[in-house]
Amino acid sequence: MTASRPILYGREDSLDRAEFRRVLIESGLGAIRPVDDEARLEAMLSGADLIVTARRDEPGRPLLGVARCVTDFSWCCYLSELAVSRSAQGLGIGKGLLDETRRLIGPQVSLMLASVPDAVGFYERAGMARIADAFWYRRER
């Protein structure tokens, strides 16, 4: 994919489930997300407080990447998925999605995420700090 057409970043309140599924699969996150459970994908989208997308500025505006977040827009924001189609990786889209998410939540809100091991370097290069004392209960399914 060439970088000839501009990338458009924006908030989308109703992202199509099939587009979301496709980007999850194409990004590699499909291996650890419930991409074959349509009801759960729909619940993930409808339960998100903030969905930021990256689309190519061309007819049909194909979805290249997505940041799906749960936030109160006041104190904290959890970025659950940052997914960029493999064909669009290396174009700065992941960083663009992070930047647009931060712009939309504002400087008073912290942005947190749990990285897959292969993406740790990306987040470090993007300027994110590691959290030493984080805890969680793993989902059972």
Results as ranks from 00 to 15, higher is better:
D37A: 11
L24T: 04
D57G: 09
V23G: 10
G65W: 02
I7W: 01
V70R: 10
P117Q: 08
D49T: 15
G121H: 08
D118A: 15
S46A: 11
R11A: 07
R141M: 10
K95W: 09
A54Q: 02
P34I: 03
W136I: 00
L91S: 09
S115R: 12
L111Y: 03
G127L: 11
P6Q: 10
L113Y: 03
D133I: 00
T53H: 00
G94Q: 11
R102F: 08
T2H: 14
P62N: 00
D13V: 01
V116N: 15
M128A: 01
E42S: 13
V120F: 05
E38C: 00
C76P: 00
G121L: 08
L113E: 05
L50P: 07
V66K: 08
F73T: 02
L45V: 04
G65M: 06
D118V: 13
S80H: 07
K95M: 14
E81M: 05
A126S: 11
E124G: 05
E12Q: 14
F122E: 10
R103S: 14
A126L: 04
I25N: 10
A83D: 01
T101F: 04
V84E: 08
S110K: 15
F73N: 09
R139T: 10
I105Q: 10
F135Q: 04
A119G: 03
G106Y: 07
P117C: 05
Q108M: 04
A129T: 14
V23N: 13
E124I: 05
M1W: 10
R103A: 14
R17W: 01
W136Q: 08
G10E: 02
R130A: 15
R21Q: 15
P34T: 01
L91M: 14
L45T: 09
A119H: 07
A67C: 09
L98I: 15
L8T: 09
Y137R: 11
F122N: 07
L104T: 12
F122H: 03
D13Q: 13
D57N: 15
R86K: 13
V66R: 06
R40S: 04
L63A: 02
A83F: 05
A18Y: 00
V120T: 14
R125M: 07
R68M: 05
Y78Q: 12
E42A: 14
V120H: 11
Y123L: 03
G94D: 06
A119M: 09
F20R: 01
R22C: 00
Y78H: 12
M112A: 11
S110Q: 12
G90V: 08
S27A: 10
G10W: 04
V52G: 00
L113S: 08
R21S: 07
E42T: 08
R86F: 02
M44E: 15
L79P: 08
Q108H: 15
G106R: 09
W136E: 14
G94Y: 07
R56M: 03
E19R: 10
S4A: 15
A43F: 01
L45K: 12
E38V: 12
I93A: 01
F122Y: 13
I93V: 15
R55W: 07
G127T: 11
S27V: 01
P59N: 11
L64M: 14
A18S: 13
G94R: 13
F122R: 06
L91P: 00
